Computed example of a mutant assay.
Amino acid sequence: MDPGTLAVVGAVGAVVAAPVILGAAGFTSAGIAAGSLAAKMMSASAIANGGGVVAGSVVSVLQAAGAAGLSGTATAAVASVGAAVGWLTGFTG
């Protein structure tokens, strides 16, 4: 496959897989799941920031994406990352 095709496949794959991966990590539509990776990330973020999770932080963006079913800016970000990974893996060098 050429790098352009791999970029498209990577972007589509990332957008399709992202809600599943977010849910598995604990970023759900009902909030952050207790005892999950997301809970550990939220705890670390809150400790680092004096007790609160900063708006726009990785944890808040991932939770917003998990709660919304991955829409808007989060979809564009995930698609961009997926496209970059697909493009990069297209080179066998």
Rank of each mutant, 00 (worst) to 15 (best):
G50I: 00
A38C: 02
L62F: 07
A44K: 08
G4F: 15
L6E: 06
A76L: 14
G35N: 01
G13F: 09
L6F: 06
V12L: 14
S60R: 06
V61W: 01
L70M: 14
S71Q: 15
G72Y: 09
A65E: 04
S43G: 13
G52L: 14
A17Y: 07
V61S: 00
A30R: 13
F91H: 08
G90V: 00
T73C: 08
G4D: 14
I21L: 14
V54M: 14
V8K: 06
V8A: 15
I32V: 13
G26K: 04
V85F: 07
S60V: 04
V15A: 12
M42L: 15
G51W: 14
G31T: 03
V53K: 04
I21P: 02
G26C: 06
Q63I: 03
V20Y: 15
A74D: 09
G93A: 09
V61C: 00
A67S: 13
G10W: 11
A48I: 07
G86Y: 11
T75Y: 08
I32W: 10
G69T: 04
L70F: 12
A7E: 01
L37G: 05
A7L: 08
V58S: 03
A79F: 07
L22P: 03
P19E: 06
A65I: 04
L37P: 03
A11P: 03
P3A: 12
K40Y: 04
A34N: 10
G4C: 13
A46H: 01
W87G: 07
F91R: 05
I32S: 04
T5W: 13
L88S: 08
I47C: 04
A46I: 09
A83P: 04
A44F: 07
S57P: 01
A24L: 14
T5L: 14
I21M: 09
S36F: 13
A44S: 11
A14E: 08
V54K: 15
A39S: 11
G31L: 03
V85Y: 02
S80K: 06
V8L: 15
L6M: 13
S36D: 12
A30D: 15
L88P: 03
G4R: 14
A55S: 12
A7D: 06
A7T: 05
A24N: 00
